[in-house]
Write a protein that binds this DNA or RNA. Structure first.
Length: 402
DNA sequence: TCTGGGGTCCTAGGACCC
DNA sequence: TCTGGGGTCCTAGGACCC
């Protein structure tokens, strides 16, 4: 199940008198800045506007379009609402992204014996629309990859079922580029060998694919061409990494300024991670230079860490190394956390481990206390500051010190 | 046209261990 | 003295997806 132009729909629901009235609507970054199109209304797509296209370019194609942003909060709230309805309609639901879900209807054959598979799909579509105001499309099939491909034929606002036994005929009608996981790079390599349609590749032996693309990749492609997919719909997906990256409105070359930005972003990812009760073993800093060259450094620490302070301390060294290797204006800075361990498991491990070299109890307590304060009084309640001498500190109305 | 932000998975080489 | 084979973990980079 795939939401139709999800960001556009949410923007319209959140702002019915503005975005809601614009037939030609683009959701994305600011037209003057460095934004790209996140999603465009179907009317705007008719002008050639596509997602990931620079907003400035999109406006040249479609000058009358309205450009709006939409808050992350609104997106996740609507996504959650859709998921909740789906969970009432299907025994197993997996979110593949904010706007894409897999439903496993295995076991509902008797429950819905009075309706066809196709009727079930329509019923799900109409229920989601009635309850959440979000229009969706459903693709159905005997395997995940078939169902996913089928949604492309269902869109917008429709249903497309590939009946059992007709998978091969369905796939043979597609381009290789349509297959999920077959992107621009692989498409080019395949085209060089005269393979464009799934039909063209069907007769190619697995040995050839492996010779061209490597053992694993070749075997994977061979299976994908045939729609083979043994993956199950797993409702308990677990996040493997958390990251935050920001493209500056103007390139930044000053080390101190980069350091300040790094501190903000370290704090922001660390806070997100603590909310979901994880600690991280690996910290990654990513830098995109003015010429779009993207570099990253990462470090794995012996014990998982969670505090703003400890994470920033590692990130600072990684950034210094990246800057040492190539000191040119930067357009993007990012901080990523991976090797995630549930906080509880981490503490249990800690009982047997050496005293934690990287992160002190005090640092953890400070971060958790700041989290609580922000929970109660808002994000701006506690902010990083500079250390000042007591006599220079300003008195606040409450008598406290800055 | 001038390139977002959030992710996942794979590869390849090196370190290290048995 | 010149050298195997398997496994795991780490790092950097890239392809791909929405």
């Amino acid at each position: 199940m795939d939401c139709d132009a999800f960001f556009v729909q949410v923007a319209r629901l959140e702002d019915p008198h503005g975005a809601g009235k614009a037939r030609l609507l683009i959701v994305g970054g600011s037209p003057t800045g460095r934004g790209v199109v996140t999603s465009a209304s179907y009317d705007a797509r008719a002008f050639g506007v596509r997602s990931a296209m620079p907003t400035a370019h999109a406006l040249r194609l479609c000058p009358d379009a309205t450009v709006v942003g939409v808050s992350r909060g609104a997106i996740s709230a609507r996504s959650r609402a859709v998921k909740e309805v789906l969970e009432e309609l299907s025994p197993v639901v997996q979110a593949a992204s904010v706007d894409e879900f897999y439903l496993d209807l295995k076991g509902t054959e008797r429950l819905f014996a009075n309706e066809s598979f196709e009727q079930s799909a329509w019923r799900i579509r109409e229920t989601v629309l009635a309850r959440t105001e979000i229009s969706v499309s459903l693709g159905g099939g005997t395997r995940r990859v078939i169902a996913k491909l089928a949604t492309n034929f269902a869109k917008p606002a429709g249903v497309h079922i590939v009946p059992a036994g007709e998978e091969e005929a369905f796939l043979r009608g597609l381009d290789l580029a349509d297959l999920p996981g077959v992107g621009p790079s692989l498409v080019e390599a395949l085209a060089k060998r005269g393979l464009v349609r799934v039909e063209d590749a069907y007769h190619v032996q697995v040995e050839w694919l492996q010779r061209w693309f490597g053992e694993r990749r070749g075997a994977w492609l061979y299976r994908r061409i045939r729609g083979a997919d043994s993956s199950e719909v797993d409702p308990h997906e677990r996040r493997k990494s958390i990251s935050s990256e920001r493209t500056f409105s103007q390139d930044v070359d000053d080390d101190e300024e980069l350091g300040r930005r790094l501190m903000q972003q370290s704090g922001s990812v660390a806070g997100t991670m603590r909310q979901s009760s994880f600690r991280a073993k690996t910290i990654t800093v990513k830098l995109r230079d003015h010429d779009f060259k993207t570099r990253q450094h990462s470090r794995t620490v012996p014990e998982p860490i969670e505090s703003d302070h400890a994470i920033y301390r590692v990130a600072k060294e990684l950034l210094a190394q990246l800057r040492k290797n190539r000191r040119v204006p930067a357009r993007l800075l990012g901080v990523g956390l991976s090797g995630l361990v549930p906080s509880q498991d981490a503490s249990q491990l800690g009982l047997f481990a050496e005293p934690i070299a990287g992160e002190t109890d005090r640092e953890r307590t400070v971060s958790r206390t700041v989290d609580e304060l922000r929970d109660r009084f808002g994000r701006e309640a506690v902010m990083p500051g500079r250390l000042v001498k007591p006599e220079q500190a300003t008195r606040t109305p409450g008598g406290g010190r800055e």
